[in-house]
Amino acid sequence: MKLSLLTALAVAALISAAHAEEADDIREASKAEAETFNTRMYAGTPGNKAYACFVRRYDAEHLARHPKQKVASMKLLISAELDREDKELHNSFRLGFRYRHRSGDFDSSGSCNHAVFTKDGNEVRLGCGVDCEGGGIGVALSKDDKSTIVRLERVRVWQNNKPDDEAEQSLVGGADDRIFRLDRTDNSECASLVTDRKELAALRHK
């Protein structure tokens, strides 16, 4: 099955986060596969709106074992919202992190679509991309659904939630910054990634 144009744009980020030999083994997820993944991601049927929050704060022992790791902590908020026009559930992401040796909070965001990696036993992942060739991330779930696996090559980020050219930078996957395992936690842990008041209220009630 060929990827639709809309899906291909978002999944391009996922492909860039995959190894080159995997690129030809990605297909668009079927509706049933996407729905099953959504139920796992949001720990139940999403309904009209749903959130899933994953967090990791790396301790000194972990960082000592990975001296080239640039990231000290990371948060990922995956959101789903039913579009009233096309009646489809649309996924998006917000990523927040702190560097190990730099001050300040950094963040990124964009839209996501489902794709299937056939080499990994038909594993469904989200391909999440940032607009205007801003790179992106691949998001998978652990077998027990208690953690997410984030893969990246490059993703555009902004410091202190300031989306302008001066604050724009990129988080580039290095030797110890290509794959991150984040643990599922209460949605309130990701509240700092949300700036809209109405959405923040919805997040806290989920």
Rank of each mutant, 00 (worst) to 15 (best):
K2H: 13
L5K: 15
T7D: 06
A8E: 10
L9Q: 12
A13H: 12
L14K: 02
S16W: 08
A20R: 09
A23C: 07
I26C: 07
R27V: 04
E33H: 12
E35Q: 15
E35T: 13
N38Q: 11
M41D: 06
Y42A: 03
T45Y: 11
G47S: 13
N48V: 12
A50N: 01
A50T: 05
F54L: 11
R56L: 03
Y58D: 00
Q69E: 06
S73W: 01
S73L: 00
I78D: 02
I78W: 02
A80V: 12
L82H: 06
K87T: 10
E88N: 15
N91E: 15
S92F: 15
R98L: 01
R98V: 00
Y99I: 00
R100D: 00
H101V: 00
H101I: 00
R102L: 04
S108I: 05
G110F: 03
S111Q: 15
H114L: 04
L126W: 06
G129Y: 07
V139L: 08
A140R: 09
A140D: 07
L141I: 11
S142M: 07
K143F: 07
D144K: 02
D144V: 02
V150H: 02
E153S: 15
R154Y: 07
Q159P: 00
N160I: 11
N161Y: 08
K162I: 13
K162G: 05
G173H: 04
R178M: 11
D186G: 06
E189A: 14
C190Y: 02
C190A: 10
L193K: 07
L193V: 06
V194Y: 04
V194Q: 12
T195N: 14
L200H: 04
H205V: 10
K206W: 14
